[in-house]
């Protein structure tokens, strides 16, 4: 599974409250309707907490969700 890079994913400016460390871009596995993707998203290097930024959720992610629902 090759990792997809999206411009909406920006790790700058966020920290994980639990682990008290900066988020960094890391490949994250996503799933919908049985399809799996690896997407580079801001994540906590310690606990693996992931951020899905608003523009990504409402933009590309929503598009892909609709596409998969119509497959």
């Amino acid at each position: 599974m090759s990792t997809i890079r999206v411009p909406e994913a920006d790790a700058a400016g966020w920290r994980c409250a639990c682990c008290d460390c900066d988020l960094v871009l890391a490949p994250v596995e996503l799933e919908y309707m049985g399809s799996h993707f690896s997407v580079e998203l801001p994540a906590c290097p310690q606990c693996g907490a992931v951020l899905v930024p608003e523009p990504l959720a409402l933009g590309k992610m929503a598009e892909v969700e609709k596409l998969l629902e119509d497959k």
Binding site: V28, E31, S38, A43, C47, G48, M61
Partner: peptide, 17 residues
């Protein structure tokens, strides 16, 4: 905001939670 896609975790390792 919301999305339907599921976050399964960091590739190759289990995340907390």
């Amino acid at each position: 905001w919301s999305h339907r896609m599921r976050i399964l975790g960091l590739d190759g390792r289990e995340g907390r939670g």
